[in-house]
């Protein structure tokens, strides 16, 4: 469906996106991950033809962006907003007509979605009378009403309560079933891990990790240990064979430099913590993310300058 090749964009000598390539098939959920300012939004904007890349190509079903492409993509931007003074249903229908639908065809579909999101009673109310979360649902409806082949969602889950997060997740999986290609960006790694078929992790404008979730995890190997315990775990990060430690109150995720050292770890803990659980697992996307992106202040977290 979507094929992005060697995309590059420079703003004021800062390289926002550099040789980004990715491919999304229909019926696939694609997680676009990365820290703030990594270049996710810029990449999305170039895919949607909102801004022009300095170099690289974007094709849809093998063709470059054309007049018709506008009608087969749907987009939910990260920062939300609607026409505050307009009626819900009118707003939805306006965007449907911009996507090439007739109002007559769009209306029943709009009502169906409003019903699904329990907003049917508000159809003729003004947007400003709705809560933020409900406005976000309206924007989501706008992005999917015309049944796009490619749906791009920038941080779709932020701002939704748990009930609506589940509703949104269910709908995304339905759309996937109906052969929609879905790209979504997020900071919530557990979300991405549960939903995505493939992921792409961008940092400082470059793709650092990509592939199917299973592949990525396999590539990063089984070098993670999850602990549940009682006691003070603050010493864990200082152990010699622990490469990185993510320590919470009664829980810790450790990454070892070598898996053969699990035995050393276990003996090292003896007498210091009362263990409830000791588990050798695949790394979570979360830990892969931290691994690749680095901790705040580390060299990996500084923006790169273009040497032009």
């Amino acid at each position: 469906m979507l094929k992005v090749t060697n995309l590059r964009k420079v703003f004021d000598r800062i390289i926002a996106v550099d040789s980004v390539s990715l491919e999304v098939k229909r019926g696939e959920v694609f997680g676009l991950l990365g820290p703030n300012g990594a270049g996710k939004t810029t990449t999305i904007r170039m895919i949607l033809n909102i801004i022009q890349p300095d170099s690289g190509t974007v094709t849809f079903n093998g063709l470059p962006f054309r007049e018709e492409t506008w009608n087969i993509v749907g987009f939910l931007p990260e920062e939300r907003g609607l026409y505050r003074k307009s009626k819900l249903i009118n707003t939805i229908l306006y965007f449907a007509t911009l996507k090439g639908m007739s109002e007559r065809a769009a209306k029943p579909v709009a009502m169906k979605w409003l019903e699904r999101f329990s907003l049917v009673d508000s159809a003729h109310r003004k947007v400003e009378e709705l809560s933020k979360g409900n406005q976000q649902k309206v924007q989501f409806i706008i992005s999917i009403l015309h049944r796009p082949q490619l749906l791009i969602l920038d941080e779709p889950f932020s701002g939704l309560d748990p009930v609506n997060q589940i509703l949104l997740k269910d709908i995304l999986l339905e759309l996937r079933q109906q052969n929609t290609a879905i790209i979504f960006s997020t900071h919530q790694m557990d979300q991405a891990e549960k939903l995505s078929d493939s992921i792409c992790l961008i940092n400082k404008g470059r793709v650092v990790v990509e592939g199917s979730v299973a592949d990525v995890k396999k590539r990063y190997g089984k070098n993670s240990v999850h602990l549940e315990y009682e006691g003070d775990g603050s010493f864990l990060g200082a152990l010699p064979y622990v490469r990185r430690a993510d320590v919470y109150q009664n829980y810790a995720e450790l990454e070892l430099s070598d898996m053969s050292q699990t035995r050393d770890l276990l003996t090292g803990l003896d007498g210091k913590l009362s263990l409830r659980k000791f588990e050798i697992v695949e790394p979570s996307l979360h830990s892969i993310f931290l691994n690749v992106v680095g901790t705040p202040g580390s060299a990996a977290a500084q923006p790169r300058k273009a040497t032009a």
Binding site: R45, L48, N49, I50, W70, V73, F75, L76, P77, E79, R80, G81, L82, Y83, R84, F95, L98, K99, Q139, I142, S143
Partner: peptide, 17 residues
């Protein structure tokens, strides 16, 4: 200005030129 401040401009120009 309104469409810029509510960011609808991005939805608009991903729908038409």
């Amino acid at each position: 200005v309104e469409e810029k401040s509510n960011r609808l401009i991005e939805v608009l120009i991903s729908s038409c030129s």
